[in-house]
Design a protein around this nucleic acid. Structure first.
Lengths: 201, 201
DNA sequence: ATCTTAGTTGACCAGTCAGTCAAGTCAAGC
DNA sequence: GCTTGACTTGACTGACTGGTCAACTAAGAT
């Protein structure tokens, strides 16, 4: 037995791959264990339940998304709007690559789970909402800078961030339903023009 | 035995309600039958498989959406843009009502299924894509009129229709993940400002 | 050497899954 | 009355579900 076991990590990775490629309900514990090369009892040693595993997946997925895509997109070497452009490019590239490798547009892990589980599992719904909140916050921070730098006129920053996130999720979903990554390249740049104005008072 | 059996209809209605409230995978044939008041053998008399049932659900759902919402929204008594506004209002109202009745924002039946099944069931993916295509087509027809009547400047009509649909789906998904119908009222009107320009040539 | 603890296993549990099928019922048509 | 076809049932199939648990293993500490 190794000094540090990597079993938990193997389970998490296997589950992430399988669930992302298919869906939460379609992937069972037995399959995850087979993929990770462990037995079920080990699974339950590390994760009290399937739901707990999924919460851990969401955290790990967000952490990876942040280091692999968001931090790159939002690096301050370019203007705020250029960062949003870069976010779009990286997203298009990511989904396109996955399509090239697997034959399917997998969609967004968070959006997929939200659509599938929100009405049935309050813990998972809340967790996804939390992740969505973080994503929107990152967008809002960039928009705030864009406004301060005069790249963007006066807008409701929080609402615009939410709207951009919604648009991103929607475009990814349509691309997934058509299994055509070309949809992303065609529609996602439109995200840059989304503006929600402050309410008239 | 009645001259005309309503069993098929009862099965379809029961399945629609259950799957819309939860998810495709979370609702089993046994439960659908119990809800419809029939036995499993009857189910398989009318539907060869769960997937076939779901295709029928998509058709019935679209037909109802068309008569209950789309036809009203797109009635020609107002200008094209006003029709889009009406579509937004009706959508907000519909999801808000369902939230009031059930405590959850159920999202879009088509989007939910796309997210859950697209990578696993090619038949269902295709069917949803087809329905999305019809929805986009309706939007495109209205946009074409808006352009013709000078309400909207020159745009890529098909792309703008797709973008609007994507935005609608995304907003509904965010509202579902937050279980807050207020998101719809706040963000959905932004759909009116979405424009995808013709590619520069 | 013994104890402790983290990790692992295999067998089990009760329930559920989509689908199958022989047999039965009923109403309409001849 | 008999036949037919639409519809319905109850029991079944083999597989699978998330989760449980007693027993075991191995490494580190004492």
């Amino acid at each position: 037995m190794n000094a540090v076991s990597d079993t938990r990590e193997r389970i998490l990775d296997a589950a992430r791959r399988l669930i992302y490629a298919r869906s939460y309900a379609d992937v069972g514990i037995a399959e995850i264990c087979a993929e990770a090369g462990v037995k079920k009892g080990s699974f339950y040693h590390f994760f009290p339940s399937k739901r707990d595993l999924t919460v851990a997946i969401l955290d790990a997925t967000f952490a990876d998304l942040k280091s692999d895509l968001l931090d790159r997109a939002f690096a301050a070497d370019v203007s705020p709007l250029a960062r949003l452009r870069r976010l779009i490019d990286l997203t298009v590239r990511s989904q396109t690559e996955m399509h090239a490798q697997t034959g399917v547009v997998p969609g967004c892990q968070f959006g997929n789970l939200a659509a599938e589980q929100s009405t049935q599992d309050e813990v998972l719904r809340n967790k996804v909402a939390e992740v969505f909140g973080r994503l929107a916050k990152g967008l809002a921070a960039t928009l705030t800078q864009a406004v301060a730098e005069g790249e963007v006129g006066p807008i409701d920053v929080a609402a615009t961030a939410d709207a951009m996130l919604a648009y991103l999720e929607g475009v990814v979903l349509i691309a997934k339903s058509r299994n055509d990554p070309g949809v992303l390249a065609r529609l996602l740049p439109g995200m840059l023009d989304i503006r929600i104005m402050p309410a008239a008072s």
